[in-house]
Simulated assay, not measured.
Amino acid sequence: MKMIKNAFLLIVVCFLTFSGFSQEKKDSPYETNFVKDGIWIASTVGLNVLGVKIIQEKDNLSLTDLNKLSKDDIWGIDRWAAGYYSEQANEDSYIPFYASFVMPFALLLNENERGNAGQISVLFVETMATTGALFTITAGLVEKSRPLVYNESLETEKRIDSDEQRSFFAGHTAATAAASFFAAKVFNDFNPDSPLKPFVWGVGAAVPALVGYMRIKAGKHFLTDNLIGYGVGAAAGILIPELHKKGNKNLQIYPTASFNQGEYKFASQGLALNFQF
């Protein structure tokens, strides 16, 4: 079933990508490039796969390390959340989380955005794939126990589980921020004179904040995890559409290739960011 879902997702990504490249863009503030955007999407999807692999190979927390954990070792800004745990808050956090992915599609209610649906879909795929790549790689490489691990009333098996050792940074918050800020940014660029802009930006900022709050209550992330996740997602949601704006000559992207050595060796191709003053 999981393989079927992944295959379906890949088909959807390919469809949205190629439809965006082939569709005529009428009155769009953006422009896309088959080579650059194709490399961007392929690279970030590849990094997502690598990141998931690293996460899957993470070890459980040893009992020795579990016994060494102390709330006193946590930064003061985060210490208050140590020990938080709520399955209800965890389940509730998925409501605004999934709702945020619907927000970009609400843009299609406007005729001009609907006429550029393929192009907007390409930018949305890039935004989410970029955010996902940053999250999965970071969560896989950084060892940081979730707040619930400090809750001594929970079963030891749950506290030492490898999935509970990737608190940094908050992926749900990052993904929600990426989707909601992307929707606000695209609406802003297509409708620069709309009186609804303050409301759209307000909703875009509030939804990921709500998710972040729920993830803290659930014992999944500390405050700083959510702040970083919020920032990463918001940056991706705003900057990727901005990179594609017509006439934006000072901010450019171009293909690159590199080889990284370490436990995970791979040749990577991607896009470099260049800003000219």
Score class of each variant (00 low, 15 high):
Glu24Met: 05
Phe169Thr: 01
Phe259His: 13
Ile11Met: 09
Gly231Phe: 00
Ala99Gly: 13
Val142Tyr: 10
Ser93Val: 00
Phe187Arg: 13
Lys245Leu: 15
Gln56Asn: 15
Glu242Lys: 09
Glu57Tyr: 15
Thr256Glu: 12
Arg79Ile: 01
Phe101Ile: 11
Lys2Phe: 13
Leu273Glu: 01
Ala82Phe: 12
Val149Lys: 14
Ile74Gln: 01
Gln119Pro: 03
Ala205His: 04
Ile238Ala: 03
Ser100Asn: 05
Leu10Ala: 09
Ala209Leu: 14
Asn226Gly: 11
Asp92Trp: 14
Ser19Trp: 11
Phe266Arg: 10
Asn274Tyr: 11
Gly76Ala: 12
Ile238Val: 10
Lys144Asp: 14
Ile120Arg: 06
Ala42Glu: 11
Val125Lys: 01
Leu50His: 12
Gly118Lys: 05
Gly83Met: 06
Ile228Glu: 10
Asn260Ala: 12
Pro192Phe: 14
Phe169Met: 02
Glu111Lys: 05
Thr138Arg: 07
Ala174Ile: 09
Glu126Asn: 13
Lys71Glu: 15
Ser121His: 08
Thr224Lys: 02
Asn151Phe: 02
Val149Arg: 13
Asn191Val: 14
Asn188Asp: 13
Leu108Ala: 09
Arg166Lys: 14
Ser62Ala: 08
Ala205Phe: 11
Leu210His: 07
Glu155Trp: 07
Val211Ala: 00
Thr131Met: 00
Thr32Val: 04
Ala267Tyr: 14
Thr131Ser: 01
Val12Gly: 10
Val13Trp: 15
Glu126Ile: 04
Ile77Ser: 03
Val211Lys: 00
Val122Glu: 07
Leu196Gly: 01
Gly51Arg: 13
Cys14Met: 07
Lys265Pro: 15
Ser162Asp: 08
Asp72Ser: 06
Lys53Pro: 10
Met1Glu: 03
Ala257Leu: 09
Gly262Phe: 06
Lys2Thr: 10
Trp75Gly: 10
Ala218Ile: 07
Leu196Thr: 01
Ile39Pro: 02
Ala81Arg: 10
Tyr85Met: 03
Leu223Met: 10
Ile238Pro: 00
Trp201Ser: 10
His244Glu: 03
Ile137Arg: 12
Phe275Trp: 14
Thr224Arg: 02
Pro195Ile: 15
His244Leu: 12
Phe18Gln: 01
Leu134Trp: 02
Leu108Phe: 05
Gly237Thr: 00
Ala205Cys: 09
Ser194Arg: 10
Val207Tyr: 00
Gly83His: 09
Pro208Glu: 00
Thr224Trp: 01
Asp189Met: 11
Glu87Ala: 03
Val122Ala: 04
Gln56Asp: 15
Phe15Asp: 06
Leu69Thr: 15
Thr64Arg: 15
Lys245Gln: 12
Ala129Ile: 12
Glu155Arg: 03
Asn33Pro: 02
Ala174Gln: 08
Leu61Glu: 02
Tyr264Ala: 06
Ile137Val: 14
Ser268Ala: 12
Ala170Lys: 08
Ala205Trp: 09
Ser268Arg: 11
Ile4His: 06
Ile74Glu: 02
Val232Thr: 04
Pro195Leu: 11
Phe124Tyr: 11
Ala177Ile: 05
Ser194Cys: 03
Ala257Lys: 06
Gly83Arg: 12
Leu10Lys: 05
Met3Ala: 08
Leu47Asp: 00
